[in-house]
Design a protein around this nucleic acid. Structure first.
Lengths: 153, 153
DNA sequence: CTGCGACCTCGACCTAACTGGAGGTCAAGC
DNA sequence: GCTTGACCTCCAGTTAGGTCGAGGTCGCAG
């Protein structure tokens, strides 16, 4: 009856999400999003793609690769009813990765704060000059990317 | 008297920091680290470079570009006594950027947690399926990278 | 039916962040 | 003095994550 208000053109998605249409095709190519085609071969997107896109951009912003994101999204709705186990496993993996990143970021921030706060403008005792303080050995989180293993900063 | 135990060769720095020597030269090229040369034109690094490297890798891991990092490091020791104002200004900028990223990451994590916790395996009421919840409009932090503006995920 | 604007594909190009190899030098041990 | 391994420069190539343009189609308004 109605004209399926669910479906969006690529232009609409680009405008609403802020993601260029070129990037949308690119993401589709890489399997991060999907679309259906009209009889005339044009893409049509479900509204849910907007949420996927927001997710993608957020994840990217904090340093996750499109591949990581794709792998995560691959287990979601589009690939039909993932098992509880799949879901739980993937989510746990992401959790520790995210935790590790949050941790790293927070540490980075707090160190800057500490330095500013201490008034050490000569930087003689600043964390940037000051040597060993060996930040906690990263804990049990997934240290996948090997960073910050030597000294605090 | 002693043979200046402070100075490290590129190989030593590479080994201790886990950063390949190729990358070390690359970073120097880009102005992120510096070295002095021996009479034979070989690089020698101060131990402090190890902290800089840890900083660089950590910052990179959380999605900051080398350029951002270089700009931040540029105001530090190597460029001689930055003014209190410079210091404070730059640090504040970094602070809000870092805060914004920590925020984004935390939100991402908590959403995953919520989803797992809710047991919505059909995903019918899952945040990934469920539309408007419009995350708080990003606050006053620096939304430099424009992400996650549409819906929660 | 004719515009024309939004869409299509495909391949070339771009930046960031590196890596690797060729060809040469330096310095310590034999 | 010769070898060997660590170092040097320069430059080409790689991967990720896109952008751009050419040349063609779709679909709606007039």
């Amino acid at each position: 009856m109605s004209k399926l208000p669910e479906m969006l053109t690529i232009g609409q998605v680009a405008e609403r999400s802020g993601v260029p249409h070129t990037a949308l095709r690119f993401y589709e190519d890489r399997g991060l999003i999907s679309s259906v085609r009209t009889t005339g071969n044009q893409r049509r997107y479900a509204r849910s793609v907007l949420r996927r896109l927001a997710f993608i951009r957020t994840a990217q912003r904090v340093g996750l690769s499109l591949e990581d994101v794709r792998d995560a999204l691959a287990t979601l709705p589009d690939s039909r009813t993932p098992t509880k186990t799949d879901w739980a496993k993937l989510s746990r993996e992401w959790q520790s990765e995210l935790d590790a990143r949050i941790d790293a970021l927070t540490r980075l921030r707090d160190r800057l704060t500490g330095c500013i706060g201490c008034g050490c403008l000569s930087l003689r005792s600043c964390f940037l000059q000051n040597s060993d303080d060996a930040m906690a050995p990263l804990g049990p989180g997934a240290p996948r990317l090997k960073a910050a293993t030597e000294g605090g900063i």
